[in-house]
Design a protein around this nucleic acid. Structure first.
Lengths: 346, 346
DNA sequence: AGGTCAATCTAAATCGATATAGGCTCATCT
DNA sequence: AGATGAGCCTATATCGATTTAGATTGACCT
């Protein structure tokens, strides 16, 4: 019933760059396949010269064992499973669990590959594509000219993104309309009489940060408000840095009567900085924050907030990825989540 | 060089309960293996009676296709990979990325299986074990008589836990010493002259909550302090519920001069509740909070905190899981993280 | 009656890696 | 000299599922 038209499917003719297998090494070395296998596994009955030769070839052509082959023969999966509850409401947990939820009932499993900010952003992507260890990839933290997206598009590898790149019209994505969010925020502050707005923005290399700032700027200009983007810190920085930057900014620009931030953490840090200067939020100064989970509103009614729900993103991304796998010729699934405007609207 | 003594390994004699394969169904039905395959895939050249029969048998014996077999033959991995940064400091992201970090350089991959609180806690475990889709499992949110642990121990399936069960001496674990944390907290409050302590505890079905409460109770008794565990809410509840419970408790027990909580969220909610009653933290009342990431201290110096680092947990758990796989006969790797006592100590 | 064809099913090959048994080549021993 | 054996490599079978080609059966047609 389901479409099984894998293009070029008669007994797997060597497509692409023909991933090297033991057979490849066997041919190159003139040895038998089992010999190659045993050499790479350092078996005692293989000559040391042979081992050296085989290892050299393997390195050169970048051989990586096919996991399915190993697993089928040995029963070893080479996988460790982290089974975790997603009871705690945070961005990461929500995204993961909502993607997993979207995969429920399909034949697909979810594999999470984290990378530290310091790591090469391309490494996990290349690994997955080259070893074909997934049918599709879901990415977040998108940048305008994201090299991962360029790489995947070039190869025709199925993927979906949480956020838009410059090529967003060509690939599946789910995004929150941060530009609209920025407009709403500024308009609301304008309606409350605020004239000098300071912003602790997300890292500006990321698309959503640029969208947010664009929205803020457009409306601030229209409203005749002053907009100041703090350039020493971003909303992902440690609280102490944000507090310091907030204090510093207030010293140099005492006319500031509003702050906009893009995360709960940053909002609380700004709050601390503002209060440290003896100012009261809601009186001399306003604080507007975007939150993944409605939270600030609960503890501090004086903070202005607008929530971005993450829950539906994962579900959509899961479906978009599956469509990219199964129906690569259909137009990509795309969704731009429009923020719900708060009470006072322009 | 590495130990390869898989017990009973001469051409895979049918061990355990012999997972059903196409061959099993073929034998039971008297049909050929390819026929069974095509029937299950709803190929047009299989009779409808045959299909019905084969599907019935497959259902009865609980046939699930072997992923390695499918992947090897078709190239389909049936995996969707979520490549995500762990830039945001939260508990989930930290645990995942630190486990992944501990797996760096090994042959193991990490697979994250989230489950919603409402789901059957055993379902993902059973699936992994029955389909052999991992070599080991890492669990968190451990309960004293956790059925997952009983299941895994009974089957001799390798695993490691973040937290201790009642059988903790028999399995690998990493845990934070919440009992010591509880003692320190109470002692510190005692040193500050606090006599009536209220606690917003984690859900009491979980081991770490019980440890925490035990530590609090032991010391409160020794110090002659009153201890009150709020039983309407736990630290995972929504902020508004915690605020309400805090307010309610203060109304009924106005003598309360300290709160202890186990999460940042709960601490902020309690803070809101306390301030809502016109009390000032650090003056009439103290607030002591446990945090995964030092955070509250940054924004509110008047809150007492003690941090639990999650980073080292993942690394340890990864290694513990690998040892459980490779050296099942060695004593399990175990670690109890001792909290760093704050300045004032008993 | 002989032939054609559709409907169903079976046989064999294959994906990649590895375990097991067997074969060949020397060197060494009696 | 023939035998023994260590050292090193090859051949074959196998894990589970799927694909392709080929075989069987019976119905239907001229």
């Amino acid at each position: 019933m389901h479409e099984n038209k894998v293009p070029g499917d008669r007994n797997a003719p060597p497509e692409r760059k023909a991933k090297p297998t033991l057979k490849t090494i066997a041919k190159l070395s003139g040895l038998a396949v089992p010999t190659v296998s045993r050499a790479l596994n350092d078996a005692p009955d293989i000559g040391s010269e042979t081992k050296k030769l085989i290892r050299k070839i393997a390195d050169e052509i970048g051989y990586v064992p096919n996991r399915a082959g190993v697993r089928l023969r040995t029963g070893r999966t080479n996988v460790i499973s982290l089974v975790m509850s997603t009871e705690h409401d945070n961005h990461t947990a929500r995204l993961i669990s909502s993607v997993a939820g979207g995969l429920q009932g399909t034949r697909f499993h979810l594999n999470v590959t984290p990378y530290a900010p310091a790591d090469d952003i391309m490494k996990p992507i290349r690994y997955i594509v080259e070893t074909e260890s997934a049918d599709a990839i879901i990415l977040n933290q998108i940048e305008p000219e994201d090299p991962r997206i360029a790489y995947l598009m070039e190869r025709g590898f199925p993927f979906a993104t949480h956020g838009r790149s410059n090529w967003f019209d060509q690939h599946p994505y789910y995004d929150f309309d941060n530009e609209a969010y920025g407009r709403h925020a500024i308009d609301l502050l304008h309606a409350r009489g605020r004239k000098h707005v300071a912003v602790v923005a997300p890292p500006l290399r990321q698309s959503y940060a640029l969208h947010l700032v664009a929205g803020l700027q457009a409306r601030a200009k229209a409203n005749g408000q002053t907009l100041f983007i703090l350039d020493q810190v971003n909303s992902d920085n440690p609280s102490e840095d944000i507090i310091a930057a907030t204090t510093d900014h207030l010293t140099r620009h005492p006319e500031t009567d509003a702050f906009v931030t893009a995360s709960t953490t940053a909002a609380l840090a700004v709050l601390a900085g503002v209060e440290g200067r003896g100012l009261t939020v809601g009186q001399q100064i306003d604080l507007f924050a975007k939150e993944a989970v409605p939270f600030l509103k609960m503890v501090r009614a004086d903070i202005l907030t607008m929530a971005e729900s993450v829950g539906s993103a994962g579900d959509f991304l899961a479906k978009a990825a599956i469509q990219a796998i199964k129906e690569p010729d259909l137009p990509p699934m795309q969704h731009l989540e429009v923020p719900v405007a708060p009470a006072s609207d322009g």
